[in-house]
Design a protein around this nucleic acid. Sequence first.
DNA 1: TTGAGACTTGACTAATCGGTCAAATTTTGT
DNA 2: ACAAAATTTGACCGATTAGTCAAGTCTCAA
Lengths: 188, 188
Amino acid sequence: METTRDKLINATFDEVFSHGYQGASLADILAKAGVHKGSMYHFFANKKEMALAAIEETILKKNADKYRYVETYTSGFLEEFYKQLHDTSVRDFKRGCPIANIVQEMSNIDEDFNTLMKSIYGAFRANIKAILDKAIEVKEMKPCDTTKLALFITSTIEGAILAAKASGNAQDYVDVIEELIEHIERKR
Amino acid sequence: METTRDKLINATFDEVFSHGYQGASLADILAKAGVHKGSMYHFFANKKEMALAAIEETILKKNADKYRYVETYTSGFLEEFYKQLHDTSVRDFKRGCPIANIVQEMSNIDEDFNTLMKSIYGAFRANIKAILDKAIEVKEMKPCDTTKLALFITSTIEGAILAAKASGNAQDYVDVIEELIEHIERKR
DNA sequence: TTGAGACTTGACTAATCGGTCAAATTTTGT
DNA sequence: ACAAAATTTGACCGATTAGTCAAGTCTCAA
């Protein structure tokens, strides 16, 4: 059952993803959630706290399963990772990447957003690094500076999503990913 | 002499760069510019037209000289490009990249912003492609798909700036650029 | 010198913003 | 059954938003 709080979290994330935090209207969120204002203030102290909760909880939930295979697999780490990268069905090139969007909009404006996004982006990098470390461990890849390579990969992915958003052409994302994989493959 | 219009353009760009378009307050822009509201509406139809003008004019002006060497040089194109990439003094890692910021915030919200940013981001890619084509022409590089490589480079640069903004660590940008140059070097 | 157009001033408007709160209702534990 | 707690309702608030406009000043050409 979707609780009132759930409705608010979902509507807030969607509204913030679409219009940014500053562009997100509380009235629109409430209308979308079908929740009254006073009810919302029962669950959250203010708009900002609700948005921070929506971002953190939604992204954590999304990533919970996404990288599970790193712990369960015993081989084929890179193949699975490449498959993930190529899967455009999980991407929304119109709105872009939720993480990147909020970093861009809020990191230099608000300390609480900055702290949260630093943690989320850091987790993204850590997840990629874990894949690379596993690949090296099972000799699918030569040892290298995985921290740096993970940084490079995350940067390029975010840039690829941005390029597709800017051009309105999903193929741009695919092209960048191809070149990125080529780059990783040279390290095997 | 800085005209009233200049003051408005500069203040608007700075305010939009700092707080985004939606977060930019007209009152703050006017205060920063030292211009009264009615005066502003003499030069611009509304906030949006002023912001679009500020973005286009400021970025065009910035890029006017930046890639001039591509037409004047006869060799050393890649070296000059690498030098540019390494120059962190032109970067503002707190606020990020103005182009990326506005693409992220506005491309999926407003058609006019979308059109403008598509053009600006496209010009960025074209500039990088021109460098690569020149490098190939004078045999500093093996022939390759420069459209695709330019897309990859611009994506990675934007991603690098974002990474530095997210972490608050300029070194992240440097690390990504190093790896990017390594990638380009393999194509020589 | 004078009139016309460019530019400036700042008070004003309507709409929307996030936020408050007391009262009503529903849910829960005993 | 009853009381206490959790939740919901929706009217209301002051502040801020972008935008309007009539009156005033300045510049410059005839």
